[in-house]
Simulated scan of single mutants.
Amino acid sequence: MSFSETAWKVFNQSIEQYHVNDDVDSLIENPFEDHSLEQILYAKNWIDSVQWHLEDIIREEEINPDEALKLKRRIDASNQQRTDLVEYIDAWFYKKYENISPKPDAKINTETIAWAVDRLSILALKVYHMRHEAERESASEDHRQKCQAKLNVLLEQHEDLSNAIDQLLIDIENGTVKMKMYKQMKMYNDESLNPILYQKTKK
């Protein structure tokens, strides 16, 4: 089984488990061995699954403004967790390939392995929810047909993205692509970098 197939399987296992309760406050029960790549992938998708539904909730037109602000703060924290895990996945691969010497003409990919995996995780959620809409009996036939057409595109995207991820891993292993890591350096959560926060502390 290729890496992308393993990741897709783990992501869908997480999504199915989340929807057992379909509750953003459900606690994760990660079934994989500690520190394994599968455990990390499962945790990554669980964060994505919870955030997917938080984004749905916050768009409720009648939502209480105070509740919306709490949700926004929660989504911000979730985004930080997501970024941290993406960087952790990159570090896992960086260590795996640390003894590979890139060729002199090795290229650098536009995104790291983990950020491509991040896209795959979100894509798994899109496929799950679009399939639900394409099969929802309470929806109109026109709605189901339109969602099926979108689902077909998402499934094609899944195939293309999976192939691209697996090819990137092959290229890194062969030394034709150089793996580099850049921290995201997000500024809005840092009191020393966000002017709204550091100006407040001076008052």
Rank of each mutant, 00 (worst) to 15 (best):
D48S: 06
S49L: 01
L54V: 07
E55R: 15
D56R: 11
D56Q: 12
I58K: 12
R59D: 14
R59M: 09
E60H: 10
I63M: 10
P65L: 04
P65R: 04
A68M: 02
A68E: 10
L69E: 15
L69P: 06
K70P: 01
K70M: 00
L71K: 09
L71S: 03
L71Y: 09
K72A: 00
I75E: 02
S78R: 03
S78K: 08
Q80K: 13
Q80M: 13
Q80S: 08
Q81D: 14
V86S: 14
Y88R: 15
Y88A: 14
I89K: 04
I89F: 07
A91Y: 13
F93P: 09
F93M: 07
Y94I: 13
K95Y: 15
K95D: 15
K95M: 11
K95C: 10
K96M: 11
Y97G: 04
Y97A: 05
E98L: 11
E98P: 05
N99W: 10
S101Q: 15
S101P: 05
P102R: 08
K103T: 13
P104S: 06
P104R: 08
A106S: 12
K107Q: 13
I108P: 05
I108A: 07
N109E: 11
N109A: 08
T110A: 00
T110Q: 11
E111L: 00
E111P: 00
T112K: 05
A114Y: 04
A116P: 02
